[in-house]
Write a protein that binds this DNA or RNA. Structure first.
Lengths: 256, 256
DNA sequence: CCATCGGCTTGATTTGCATCAAATCGTCCG
DNA sequence: CGGACGATTTGATGCAAATCAAGCCGATGG
């Protein structure tokens, strides 16, 4: 592993707080690997031997049943994945597939579990990461069970706008059929939902979406901080856990 | 707090592995409280000051949006809840309501976080608990996104049968309208789904369901260990995390 | 440049589920 | 016991989303 890779790992929220020795243990058997687009990194049901850390590219996690497939989440750097399976030394519940060329750090699961037993600060970081991911899924379930597909799309767009802090234009970072599956609908209905949102100031040109009237869009979307996490990512906030405490941190830093 | 309560906490999987000092810190500010049925223990959005441990009774966790409510999970003893919010010191994403008279242990969140920093074994237990809950939600999302409502009911019945290891009869432990919400459907459609399952050997008498033909039911349900966790609870298996490693433990203990 | 292919859109149809409405059932209480 | 209430069931209807079927469009390659 290269020295630059070591530095990148050190900067991960998971390791930011860890003792030097912990870090040595964890990285001893680790390696960075590159994968072409469309590579299956992991199949659901497989035993999980490594913790994966996406350093560059995009990875999709999906689930399968009875010849149907659904996208559960799309990861962008820097994200860890299948941490829960590593902690429990259990089989994966989700399959992982690269969507683009990816650079991925793989840390042996044994090393992670050993490090947790040795270093409470590291174990705390793992817990925080897991707690953040857990809350992400709670939000996801509420989104699916309480909203219809157009409402989910509208909130997705508003969340993306807030996350990228990108004015009134949102870039879709993945194919629409993948976005559709992530939002729990068919590609056909995603098209139709976009059409519906035209009346609320949304226009689509390929992967560029412009939100001309966010007030109208919000009226339909009714975004809710207990479902939609609109913490702007990048900078301080890189892990799910950081995003989870963003709102309360915000109110503590700037009271009123 | 009574001495008998202390013993019950010691037996929790969360504390089974903890150092004596950890245990002292955690229980110092803890207390057991009793609540009547229908009590709101926690409202989504509230700051979470305690880790809750359900010792007796039933608790429902639900989410709300736009005047709609959905049941996210139903807890039976012994279960911890809102651990993720405690770890992150964040606001609750779910509301908690007692369904029956309940006995609940409340441990100050500060104490939990302090204990985690002091005792890596305890922090490991917290991580395992969180990882187990996380995987429960992954299963839940796959269930919702990949199956229709009758399939979900069929799998629910099969899972209950396996969990209670109760021959061919399953007891519904909660009102049907709550079960309906848990399974993501209306009470009306739950009725109709039960009617559909009659053709597969399912008959309902109040809260007693008999499965006369599990083979036929399984043919419709297509249960999958990567969605349905059929680990029999009670005895060794009390936490979600235990249930998660049940299958792999099983194959290690009894190879072939 | 044209042909091809995959992804996306649009339209027609079907299906699944929610909603609305009313009847039934069981339980609790005056 | 009679009545009331809530939970459940059953039936009728409407809507949302999936499916089926073409067309369109942009990228790619001969």
């Amino acid at each position: 592993m290269r020295a630059s890779d070591i530095d990148r790992i050190k900067a991960l929220p998971l390791f930011a707080d860890a003792a030097a020795e912990t870090f040595r243990v964890a990285t001893a058997g680790a390696h960075v690997q590159r994968f072409p687009p469309g590579t299956m990194l992991l199949l659901e049901g497989d035993p999980v031997d490594f913790l994966y850390v996406l350093l560059d590219g995009q990875v999709e996690l999906h689930g399968t049943w009875n010849d149907h497939e659904t996208v559960l989440t799309i990861l962008r750097p820097v994200s860890t994945f299948i941490l829960a399976a590593v902690v429990l030394d259990a089989a994966a519940l989700m399959s992982a597939r690269t969507l683009e060329r990816c650079e991925i750090l793989m840390i042996p699961g044994d090393a992670i579990r050993t490090a947790m037993r040795l270093d409470p600060r590291f174990a705390m970081s793992v817990s925080r990461d897991l707690a953040g991911c857990y809350r992400g899924l709670v939000r996801n379930i509420k989104n699916i069970k309480l909203r219809n597909s157009t409402e989910r799309l509208a909130n997705y767009l508003l969340a993306q706008r807030a996350i990228d802090s990108s004015g009134s234009t949102v870039i879709l970072h993945h194919e629409k059929r993948i976005l559709a599956s992530l939002l729990g609908m068919t590609p056909e209905n995603l098209s139709r939902s976009f059409a519906t949102l035209q009346k609320h100031g949304v226009s689509v040109q390929g992967s560029v979406v412009t939100l001309a009237n966010t007030a109208a869009l919000e009226q339909l979307a009714k975004p809710d901080p207990l479902i939609d996490n609109n913490a702007p990512r990048g900078g301080d906030i890189v892990a799910e856990a950081d995003a989870e405490i963003w709102l309360s941190e915000l109110s503590r830093t700037k009271p009123r």
